[in-house]
Design a protein around this nucleic acid. Structure first.
Length: 260
DNA sequence: AATCCAATCAACCGCCATCTT
DNA sequence: TAAGATGGCGGTTGATTGGAT
């Protein structure tokens, strides 16, 4: 008797998430907290695998996520931690609040690894490469490091401190991605929250400021439509989430606020 | 303008660890 | 203790983007 798959492969939607799906997932978690992922899609009305829901939440919808490229400090920390921990991305991510293991893993593979190689450092062992021409040209590398692959990084840093939150490419999905100047003071409540979650600077400071004063959204007057709805998020930042009635607290382990 | 190609990153897959019964 | 259920992790893939030609 084998293990059951985490979900039926048939009838389960795959691929990029739509704004509608995000909305459903956010809505569900807002009202019920994070309960067992296997049940989430059914209860939330999603044709997704529970695993997929968890991943979407963890890597993209979670309110405490930082967006944009890793700072130089963060990058150095990742390198240091990788030297100690190896490819333990979740452990590394736990040391970088607001960053996900997936994000760090991607950044490592696309940026840091190349930089290290160019610098003549073995990205696996963190020791100098044996036959490294690169090692001899290390000085030039530090100047040029990343001229190729990191040009975009530098540009994006210059242009706006960090890269814009990637937008869904499907035009039907873009509806919920606010353009600058979007008037957040009108429209469906949940949609606003989705907009906020999707596009805003979601550092914890922003969340706290936001929850405390609503100042993050300059053009909002009066109480926001989801006032009070985010209390649980603050709870879960500090104490691990799942204050909600229907949720089994024992399943929640958000101990350090970065590892949910 | 069209095509190619490398870079990027969201999402999936399979496996493992832990929990529950 | 065994077996199943669930969550989480790390590796990999594939769609998309944007620069180069």
């Amino acid at each position: 008797m084998g293990r059951q798959p985490c979900c039926d492969k048939q009838g389960v939607k795959r691929g990029p998430w739509t704004a509608e799906e995000d909305k459903k997932l956010i809505s569900f978690i807002l009202t019920h907290g994070r309960c067992c992922w296997r049940a989430v899609p059914k209860l939330a009305g999603l044709l997704r695998c529970g695993k997929s829901c968890r991943l979407r939440w963890t890597n993209y919808l979670r309110p405490d996520l930082k967006r944009g490229l890793l700072s130089a400090d963060e990058e150095q920390l990742v390198i240091d931690l990788h030297a100690k921990l190896g490819n333990r991305w979740s452990k590394i991510a736990a040391k970088l609040p607001g960053r996900t293991d997936n994000e760090i893993k991607n950044h490592w593979n696309t940026h840091i690894k190349k930089k290290l190689v160019k610098m003549g450092i073995d990205p696996v062992t963190h020791q100098p490469l044996a036959n490294s021409k690169a090692a001899s040209s290390q000085s030039t590398v530090t100047d040029e490091s990343a001229k190729s692959s990191d040009t975009r990084d530098e540009l994006s840093l210059k242009e706006g401190s960090h890269r814009e939150v990637p937008r869904p490419t499907d035009s039907s999905e873009q509806s919920s991605w606010p353009e600058s100047g979007t008037n957040i003071g009108s429209g469906d409540d949940l949609e606003l929250l989705v907009d906020w979650l999707s596009g805003a600077d979601l550092s914890i400071e922003a969340w706290l400021n936001f929850a405390g004063s609503n100042n993050e959204l300059g053009n909002v007057e009066g109480p926001l439509p989801w006032d009070g709805m985010t209390d649980w998020l603050l709870d879960y930042q500090d104490f691990g989430m799942c204050s909600s009635n229907s949720v089994n607290d024992s399943t929640i382990q958000g101990s350090n606020g970065s590892n949910f």
